[in-house]
Structures are given as structure tokens and as C-alpha cells.
Amino acid sequence: MVTEKKVRIGEAARILNVSVQTLRNWEKSGKLLAERSKGKQRYYSLQNLHKLTLNLQMLGLAWAKSSLPPELPNEYYCERSDRFTSRVAKMGVELQNAGSISEDMASLLTLVAGEIGDNSFAHNGANWPDIPGVFYAYDIDKRLIVLADRGRGVKATLRQIRPSLTTDMDALKVAFTEIVSGRSPEKRGNGLKVVRNVIESKEIGLSFRSGIGLVDIPIGPGLMQIRMTDENIRGTYAVILF
């Protein structure tokens, strides 16, 4: 049955700004499936079309920096770590099945996304300033993963064991480069060091922001740079490109 929330292929092409032939190709490849009417005409769900038009980077950024958080599609919001973990595992399987991505790359991208998102939960615990959890979205076709949280940020969490840290840039440098061995009273991970090593040595790019600090690692083998930005991020915001 055709409902008012569905449109025909011409309208779908106009909404997505692609050709009708592109939509037919997407149907063949499974990227965007159409339903068929009794007359065999294609109909597209408006909801599915809007998902494709979402700019994941802008949505994640809005989640990380806005005083009032935007409403998120349920599939991009992980309130608790168990939901995040299961979604990362799902992404891992999708990366493995993507065909164009090697097993090693699937393993490492899953590590990078898993470690960054898990840090948000590990470092904020029960102390989320307003809304708990992470924004987590990915688009394997666009080779993009976005994570964001509205937590306390890297500087505030690291200052618990390094009270002398004064800037967001210094905090990011410690987080991504120094082995933090203190395990008491709070267990400290060294996961971001592994993340940096992986990204610097592989065809993966990272932009990681917290406060006014930015960690930038170019896609393709290249070294990390830390800079100051003119825009404050409440917790953390990460864009992974591959």
C-alpha cells in the first residue's frame, strides 16, 4: 500500500539531487531499496530519503557544541555503553562485508571508533553535565565515522590526575601521546595512544576536538598536529575518515 510518506522515483531523485538512473543503480547495489506498487512503480520512503540527506558531521557537531542539543534520530544516539558496543560490533560486520575494505582496516577502524566512543563513557561515568551518552553515526559508502559527546571534555577529566594541565591543547597532547600509568583511584587507559599510532600509520584521518583544542591527523600516513580553534566543543567531537 502506498502511503503519503512515500514518493515516486522522480521526486526521490529531486530530493536527493541525483538522477533517476542513480536511484536505479542504488537499488541494484542495495544502497537504497524501493518498494513497488501493484503497477511495478518504485516508491521510496521519505524517512529513508531524509536519512541520506543528513549531514552526519554537522549533526554530530551540533550535538557536541550546542547549548540545547538537537533531536537525534534514535539510531545515532547511544545513551549507554552497551548500546554503543553493540552498534560498534554491527559496524565491524558491515565493514567486513563492504568488499572494498580489507580485514585489517575493518579491525582497526572498529578499534578506533570503539576506543574513542568508549572513552566518552569511561571518562564521564555518572558525571554527564546534561545529557549522557554519545552521538555515533557512520556511512561506509562515504567512508566516514562521526562520534560526539556532551561530556566534561578531555581537560576536565585529565585534570583529575594532572591538575597542572591548563589548556585544552596540553590536555589533548597528554591524552594522545603520553602513557598515563596511574591506575588508582580511577583506571586510566592508554587507548588514545593506540588510536594515534594506528591512524598515523594507516590510510585513516582523524579530527578530534575538545574545548578549543583540535587534534588533526591527515588521511594517509602522516603525523598528528594539535591546534587551537575559535569554537568551543562541550565534550568531544571526532570525525574519522578512511
Partner: peptide
């Protein structure tokens, strides 16, 4: 196993 993170493995 596809992925083990350093945090999981360390713990």
C-alpha cells in the same frame, strides 16, 4: 575475533 581494543585487553 575482529577487534580487541587496548582497554578491553588491558583489563
Amino acid at each position: 575475533v575482529l577487534t580487541v581494543t587496548p582497554s578491553w585487553l588491558d583489563e
